[in-house]
Simulated scan of single mutants.
Amino acid sequence: MKPQIRKRAVIVAASALVVTSVGVGVSQAGPEHRDAPPTKARIAALFDGWNDALRTGDPEKVADRYASDAVLLPTVSNRIRTDHAEIVDYFEHFLENKPVGKKIETIVNVLDKNSAIDTGLYEFTLTDPDTGAQRVVEARYTYEYEKRGGEWLIVNHHSSVMPEG
């Protein structure tokens, strides 16, 4: 076996061991798609996994979709969140309103095999925990993704309420 091929085999085996050890709960794609090249459709679909994480009501599940050094500029907070604990804190409060997101318009740019940007417009239906009243918040967004350790993670997420809303 050539040294380069042997090295790749060791890396693949080590990656499989890490995935088996930590699970694939954070995976944004099934195992059959882990090594597939990114497409605009695959990157756009990462939002669905993020939105599903919102529906669990668990801020840790949502925050796990972000890289450890991610930056979150959230929709309904004036604080920039720059680490896991701050991102969890934001979602603890945001999830109280049982948000359900829906993309209105999306533009995806695949930058290379390990990075992509998804930007556009989305809306959230929020439910007041005290009254049950619902309201829709229209916002613009940018998700910057990087593939790290075989997983697509959010490294930068900016969301802001539409200025003319």
Rank of each mutant, 00 (worst) to 15 (best):
T82R: 06
V110M: 00
Q28F: 04
Y141K: 02
F47Q: 15
L153R: 05
D112A: 03
A41Y: 00
G49E: 12
S115N: 07
G25R: 14
H158K: 04
E92Q: 08
D58Y: 14
T75D: 13
V88M: 12
I117W: 01
R79G: 04
V71N: 03
G30F: 12
V137S: 11
R135I: 10
P38F: 06
S77F: 11
A133Y: 08
S159V: 10
R135Y: 08
I107Q: 05
D112H: 00
E164Y: 04
V161C: 07
V19H: 13
D58M: 08
D112E: 00
D112Y: 00
N97F: 12
L153H: 02
E96M: 03
G150S: 01
P37D: 10
I5Q: 07
V12A: 08
R148V: 01
F47I: 13
K103Y: 03
T20E: 08
A70S: 10
L73R: 08
I87L: 02
M1I: 02
T142I: 05
V137K: 05
Q28V: 03
V100P: 05
A36Q: 14
H93K: 09
A36Y: 01
E60F: 07
E123L: 09
V137R: 09
G132Q: 02
V76K: 10
T75S: 08
A70I: 10
T131R: 07
P74M: 15
V136E: 09
K98L: 01
F91S: 00
E32H: 15
T106Y: 00
H93M: 06
R6L: 15
V161M: 13
V155L: 04
Q28L: 11
G49I: 15
K40A: 09
A70P: 08
D89R: 07
A139L: 15
T75M: 12
K102I: 07
E86D: 09
K102T: 10
D89S: 10
A16K: 04
L126W: 09
A14E: 05
R135C: 09
D128K: 10
I87T: 13
P99H: 01
S115D: 01
V155S: 05
D35E: 01
G132T: 05
V88H: 09
G25V: 13
E138C: 14
V10P: 00
V100C: 15
K7I: 15
D89K: 11
D112F: 00
L111W: 06
A29C: 08
V100G: 11
L17H: 07
S159W: 03
P129D: 03
Y66N: 13
G25S: 10
N78W: 06
D35A: 11
E144W: 11
L73G: 07
H158G: 07
